[in-house]
């Protein structure tokens, strides 16, 4: 027998890598969605969202986290391409007539296509949000504004120069503005919603499939895993669509 393959060079190992990175990306999607809800006035609003975004991008752990996330995306995508190419090679000549036997689903059959659409979306998303228009909000610290107020009331031009020097106007990115401006474009919002539905398709098969790949299959829990997978897919597709629907159609404040 020929040389044994390393774990990640086997078909099972590659699929384990796909499922583990997939579950990690699922975790990222969860935290991203929770943060997004701060966009809504009922929960957060402009200041709350910008404060959260500012906290996030100035956090010391953000660079290692972003590198890790980038690596997970790359591993998931590169492995997916490798797996797909290997599968193509495993059947060089296709059938003249081929029918489904009813077990596969539209979602399971279109993982490569849905994944590709999500990839395109991801690039556009980073370009238009993370690296999109940089609006700034300036916030003057509370104690400073009080000092100036006091000076006006007393009617004296008694300005303490040291106060002005330290009254550094805190300037942070107004990511909220970028969001509402992007979503005010109706075509952009529609494409965003389309991408989120496709992501739901991807999750509907991907989530449950990752359990099977990792060997977690038991008749007692199988229907539960399938149910949760479909439920989460719908939650994520709808949850992420709330923002383009709200800022694009219900309350387009950035137009």
């Amino acid at each position: 027998m020929s040389q044994k393959r390393t774990f990640l060079n086997t078909t099972v190992g590659k699929k384990v890598l796909m499922s583990v990175t997939g579950l990690m990306l699922f975790g990222f999607l969860t935290s991203h969605l929770v943060g997004n809800f701060l966009l809504l006035d009922a929960i957060g609003g402009r200041d709350a969202f910008n404060d959260y975004a500012h906290w996030l991008i100035t956090h010391p752990a953000i660079i290692p986290m972003e590198i890790g996330l980038f690596a997970v995306f790359v591993i998931h995508i590169v492995t997916a391409v490798k797996v797909s190419l290997a599968s193509k090679a495993a059947r060089p000549e296709s059938y003249a007539v081929r029918n489904t036997l009813g077990k596969s689903t539209f979602f399971s059959r279109s993982m490569l296509q849905s994944g590709s659409i999500i990839f395109v979306f991801l690039v556009v998303h980073l370009y238009t949000f993370k690296f999109g228009t940089e609006h700034k909000v300036s916030q003057i610290k509370d104690n400073v504004s009080k000092t100036t107020e006091l000076a006006v009331v007393e009617g004296e031009i008694k300005v303490d120069t040291t106060t002005i020097d330290t009254a550094v106007i805190e300037s942070k990115r107004d990511l909220y503005q970028t969001v509402v401006e992007n979503f005010a474009k109706k075509w952009y919002s529609l494409l965003y919603i389309f991408a989120m539905i496709v992501m739901g398709f991807h999750l509907a098969h991907g989530f449950q499939s990752s359990f099977q790949t990792l060997g977690l299959n038991h008749p007692k829990y199988n229907c539960c895993v399938k149910g949760i997978s479909n439920f989460l897919a719908i939650c994520f597709a709808l949850g992420y669509s709330v923002f383009p629907i709200y800022f694009g159609f219900i309350n387009p404040i950035g137009g």
């Binding site: 027998m1 020929s2 044994k4 393959r5 060079n9 086997t10 078909t11 099972v12 590659k14 699929k15 797996v83 290997a86 599968s87 090679a89 495993a90 059947r91 489904t100 036997l101 009813g102 077990k103 596969s104 689903t105 399971s108 059959r109 993982m111 098969h205 449950q208 499939s209 099977q212 790949t213």
Partner: peptide, 23 residues
């Protein structure tokens, strides 16, 4: 280990958990 390795050596594809085989 040996059976999975041999399966891969023969050039079969990856399992994407669609379940058509079962049917």
């Amino acid at each position: 280990i040996n059976m999975v390795n041999q399966m891969d050596e023969e050039g079969f594809g990856h399992c994407t958990n669609e379940g058509e085989c079962e049917a």
